[in-house]
């Protein structure tokens, strides 16, 4: 089954605020084998000028994931999750995420393409703080494998 091309341009409702917990940042940091004290130690983070420990560069995936769930569960999109493979990923940050941040995210489908027997769906998730200021944009291409593979 291919993805509905008409969802290109579609946006989903902004997610509820996600409160970035300090222990969540530590847990994620350990999971990606981060060793910087700025990811783990509050004093080290403050000494470097941050309000609290800093999340690793790929931490925004946790917030982006909430928006990808909106897309994957959208019956209009027609994405068969069991056939989804991650094609590419990018994070473009205005500032790093720190523990204590409260973040909301909005996903827009930017492209739907067919390549061979596969479908590719590219989305952009914009993450903002409570004042509406940009924090990070996460770009992701999901490949939905065709029937023959």
């Amino acid at each position: 089954m291919s993805i509905n091309p008409e969802i290109q341009g579609k946006s989903y409702p902004q997610t509820e605020p996600y409160l970035v917990g300090r222990e969540k940042v530590r847990e994620f940091s350990r999971a990606v084998l981060a060793t910087s004290p700025i990811n783990l130690d509050v004093e080290a983070a403050r000494a470097a000028g941050h309000a609290d420990i800093v999340a690793p560069p790929t931490f925004p995936i946790v917030i982006q994931e909430l928006t990808l769930q909106q897309l994957l569960s959208d019956p209009d999109a027609g994405v068969d999750f069991s056939r989804v493979v991650h094609g590419d990923q990018r994070f473009t940050a205005t500032r790093a995420i720190v523990a204590g941040d409260e973040l909301r995210a909005t996903l827009t489908v930017t492209a739907v393409k067919q390549l061979g027997g596969h479908s590719m769906i590219t989305s952009e998730t914009v993450v903002v703080d409570p004042g509406g200021d940009h924090v990070v944009t996460a770009l992701s291409t999901l490949v939905v494998r065709g029937d023959e593979s």
């Binding site: 910087s36 690793p56 590419d88 990923q89 790093a96």
Partner: peptide, 10 residues
């Protein structure tokens, strides 16, 4: 500093 990373793609 992890905050010095402004863009990362793969």
């Amino acid at each position: 500093d992890p905050a010095a990373v402004s863009d990362y793609q793969v």
